[in-house]
Design a protein around this nucleic acid. Structure first.
Length: 466
RNA sequence: GCCGCUGUAGCUCAGUCCGGUGGAGCAAUUGACUGUUAAUCAAUCGGUCGUAGGUUCAAAUCCUACUAGCGGCGCCA
């Protein structure tokens, strides 16, 4: 089959090159169906000022019509390009198309590139041909949009410049994560999203019918990753996590992408080292590969540029003291809440870990310090500039009896966690892990107002459509 | 779950307090136009004022219920 397609493709090009008198339409149609020749079109960022008769396709971003000339700003996946169509340069058909075209119409153009300081990015395409691929209806998104309208039209809003830039950064956050894990000998694994038991506690689970049983959407794949370290030692997974929290804030979405790692023979300190190196690598990667996007998002990258591992580490107690020095009134065992966390993040001004949390604050699987059981081996990684928590991680409880006691102490039944408890029965080893929020990180790196902007179709309390 | 707010033209909003013939900008349509940068200028089109009920001579406006959504907090990535 492939050979056949290849032959068609070659034949089509031979016909084109030789300007054959044979009618190639049947072959064109067929081969395009299987094998679209991308090479004849250029992407905007690949266009050079010396290009003649270059073909570009995409969508209409802006349009400005005059008596004898029309400016069309063309948008494709790579950027925008100002095109000028002059009455004198164009066929009647092309000129008519140009006068008919509207915002977000799909178009294909041909023209000669030139340097021009009057155009966007100093490059302009002087059109020699202009066709409309699809005209369609009036695009509903105009310059004024409320948040509500935007969310109702998310499926169209994803075309916006801002949304596109954010998605490009996020793609690199995920890519850089995978690269780092790969370079550091982690295996990517694929744990289930449908589960029969809770991880974080019962109150924020989405439940659903699973044949004749009840099931839940995953809140974290941590427990499954813990099972997998016994074969692969260092594993990671990038999966969606779901939290049925009824809160509405700028830093929560009910479905988010969770970058989770779990490592055998790694302790609390070693785990933080992994986190800081991973995060520093992602930041570096994005700064290098998303310069254009960050600039267009008007992100001041001065703080990001200075970030390198290792990160600063302060204990929970030091965090409380620092906050109290800055006007808060907290005592040992108080939660560090949103407002306090934001202040702390601003005060410290660089990424930092908060370590040595009170044991009572953390779930049953966190290992408690044997010498001083008041605190446990759990740490949160905080982003600066008011963004706050992006990772929670720590060493896991690896002693069978202690784990069972803690499950009981939380008021749950060990039977529900039987398989997880089992992991401590056969060659249990010390191990640690963490969960990084891909959206939290992207939110911070892009310097956005709300985390919802980092998901093309954010799932929030009242949003399941589109 | 708690607290606060909003629903008026396709979109963004004014008008509501203090009831008396529904307004502007953008979009769309038509025309003009000097290389425009969310072009500009002129005209035209556009509304069951979220839904239901109540008060009143009269309700977008006052009252009640319902409904949809937005902002924040408990939480957490």
């Amino acid at each position: 089959m492939f050979t056949f397609i290849l032959l068609l493709y070659r034949y089509e090009n031979i016909l084109k090159e030789n300007n054959s008198l044979l009618n190639p339409n049947i072959f064109l149609g067929l081969s395009k169906f299987y094998f679209m020749p991308e090479s004849t079109y250029k992407h905007i960022t690949d266009i050079e000022t010396s290009d003649k008769e270059v073909k570009v396709r995409g969508w209409v971003y802006r349009i400005r019509k005059m008596k004898d000339k029309v400016f069309v700003v063309l948008r494709d996946a790579t950027g925008i390009l100002q095109c000028i169509g002059k009455l004198e340069d164009l066929s009647e058909e092309a000129w008519n198309n140009l006068n008919e075209v509207a915002i977000e119409n799909a178009i294909a153009v041909k023209g000669n590139a030139k340097e021009d300081s009057r155009a966007v990015n100093n490059i302009e395409l002087v059109l020699t041909d202009f066709t409309i691929i699809h005209k369609g209806e009036v695009f509903p998104i105009a310059k004024d949009q409320s948040k509500e309208f935007m969310l109702d039209n998310t499926h169209l809003f994803v075309r916006s410049y801002k949304s596109t830039n954010i998605m490009k950064v996020k793609a690199n956050v995920l890519r850089a994560s995978r690269e780092w894990f790969y370079d550091n000998k982690f295996y990517e694994v694929t744990p289930p999203i449908l589960t029969g038991s809770a991880c974080e506690g019962g109150s924020t689970l989405f439940d659903l019918k699973y044949f004749d049983q009840k099931a839940y959407l995953s809140q974290s794949v941590q427990l499954y990753l813990e099972a997998l370290i016994y074969s692969l030692e260092k594993v990671y997974a990038i999966t969606p996590s779901f939290r049925a929290e009824k809160m509405r804030t700028k830093r929560h979405i009910n479905e988010f992408w969770h970058i989770e790692g779990e490592e055998a023979f790694v302790d609390f300190e070693g785990n933080m080292k992994i986190q800081e190196e991973l995060v520093a690598f992602i930041i570096q990667y994005v700064l290098e590969n998303n310069k254009k996007e960050l600039k267009e998002l008007e992100r001041d990258t001065s703080i990001l540029e200075q970030i390198k591992a290792p990160f600063k580490k302060i204990s929970y107690e030091e965090a409380i003291n620092t906050l109290n020095e800055n006007g808060h009134k907290l005592k040992w065992d108080d939660d560090i809440k949103t407002e306090e966390e934001r202040d702390l993040s601003n005060i410290i001004g660089e990424p930092f870990f908060v370590t040595m949390y009170p044991s009572a604050h953390k779930p049953f699987y966190v290992k408690i310090n044997e010498r001083d059981p008041k605190w446990c081996y759990s740490a949160d990684l905080m982003a600066p500039e008011g963004f706050g928590e992006i990772i929670t991680g720590g060493q896991r409880e690896d002693v069978l009896d202690t784990l069972v006691e803690r499950i009981i102490a939380e008021g749950w039944s060990p039977e529900d966690y039987e398989w997880y408890i089992d992991l401590r029965k056969y060659g249990s080893v010390y191990h640690s892990g963490f969960g990084l929020g891909a959206e939290r990180l992207t939110w911070w790196l892009c310097g956005l107002d709300a985390i919802q902007e980092t998901q093309p179709f954010p799932r929030t309390r009242n949003r399941i459509y589109p």
